[in-house]
Simulated assay, not measured.
Amino acid sequence: MGVVGRTWDWLSTSAHWSGEGGVWQRLGEHLFLTAVCLAVACALALPVAVWLGHIGRGGALAVNISNAGRAVPTFAVLVLLLLSPLGSYGSLPVVVALVLFAIPPLLTNAYVGMREVDRDVVEAARGMGMTGRQLLTGVELPLAFPLIATGVRSAAVQVVATAALAALPGGGGLGRVITAGFRLTDTAQVVAGALLVAVLALLVEGALVLLQRLLDPLRRRPARIPGAPGGM
């Protein structure tokens, strides 16, 4: 039997899915780790990017510094963190590495989305007496939402795929399926674990696309752009 057949056998064996260390438990750990890291990255990156995009100063430098961080492999960052004093704090090095990995797409997309809002629309809103807060929440954020959401999707998929590295220092997640397969020299289990991570990344991408469509303020209500006929 080839690798494909043995991989299918592994995935279709119920014993591999249930109980302690089963796929369902590892999946829950993987999703929890992804959610925590993505939430922390969003809390750090989005307010900064949105504010810099709103005021139009300092954003280019922040984006360039953030993008430079993409050149550093996540695995290398994780190894350095494990060797640092943070290495004695359980999963903290993994969380820090994944948060750092998620920040660049969040920061870049949110800043670019804010800066690409039509300046004529912004000036028309200012001319109608809108305050900075009203301009930010009522005009700029709704128009920048698609790019901001794209950044969140990109960061989420990257974190889902990279969270498998959490297994290397003994953390949880689907990466444990892969590392166990290597330890047992079970190629089918290694391939099965990789497929599970890939499928999860695709499912997360699809779910976030649907969520974006549901939350997009320009889809949920007719756009009222200052200065346009029938606008504010």
Score class of each variant (00 low, 15 high):
63 V>H: 14
43 A>F: 00
31 L>R: 05
9 D>W: 02
208 L>Y: 05
65 I>C: 07
16 H>E: 11
69 G>K: 07
213 R>W: 02
180 A>T: 07
75 F>V: 15
56 G>Q: 10
194 A>Y: 03
117 V>K: 14
172 G>C: 13
31 L>F: 05
35 A>Y: 04
232 M>C: 12
194 A>W: 07
135 L>Y: 09
132 G>I: 00
149 A>G: 12
160 V>W: 11
7 T>K: 15
54 H>P: 12
178 I>M: 13
106 L>S: 06
4 V>M: 13
124 A>S: 14
165 L>S: 10
2 G>P: 13
5 G>M: 01
210 L>T: 05
66 S>H: 01
120 D>Y: 04
27 L>N: 08
69 G>N: 07
141 L>N: 04
214 L>M: 03
196 L>T: 02
95 V>T: 15
117 V>D: 01
108 T>I: 01
197 V>G: 05
184 L>H: 06
190 V>G: 02
126 R>A: 04
218 L>Y: 06
186 D>E: 13
83 L>G: 15
32 F>V: 09
216 D>A: 03
190 V>K: 05
185 T>F: 14
110 A>E: 07
40 V>T: 05
129 G>S: 06
127 G>M: 04
140 E>A: 04
71 A>H: 03
110 A>K: 00
189 Q>I: 02
120 D>K: 13
103 I>Y: 03
122 V>N: 03
206 G>E: 14
27 L>V: 07
20 E>T: 05
203 L>N: 08
89 Y>K: 09
80 L>E: 13
84 S>A: 06
30 H>W: 06
53 G>R: 00
107 L>T: 02
113 G>D: 07
29 E>D: 12
132 G>L: 03
11 L>F: 09
186 D>Y: 06
103 I>G: 06
193 G>V: 05
212 Q>K: 06
108 T>E: 00
187 T>I: 08
74 T>S: 09
170 G>N: 09
130 M>H: 12
1 M>G: 08
1 M>D: 09
95 V>C: 11
19 G>T: 08
106 L>I: 09
102 A>M: 13
205 E>Q: 11
221 R>K: 12
78 L>E: 00
44 L>A: 14
31 L>Y: 07
72 V>G: 08
196 L>K: 06
171 G>P: 12
156 A>C: 03
161 A>S: 10
100 L>V: 03
192 A>R: 02
187 T>N: 14
141 L>D: 15
89 Y>V: 01
95 V>P: 14
153 R>M: 10
184 L>R: 12
183 R>H: 06
150 T>C: 14
3 V>L: 15
43 A>C: 00
125 A>W: 02
130 M>V: 01
40 V>G: 06
165 L>H: 10
34 T>M: 13
134 Q>V: 01
149 A>H: 15
129 G>H: 01
224 R>V: 00
135 L>M: 13
50 V>Q: 06
75 F>H: 10
182 F>A: 10
82 L>N: 12
138 G>N: 04
123 E>W: 01
96 V>N: 14
135 L>K: 07
122 V>Q: 12
83 L>D: 08
197 V>L: 03
230 G>V: 02
112 V>W: 04
152 V>H: 08
97 A>I: 09
45 A>T: 01
174 L>G: 10
197 V>Q: 04
20 E>F: 11
47 P>D: 11
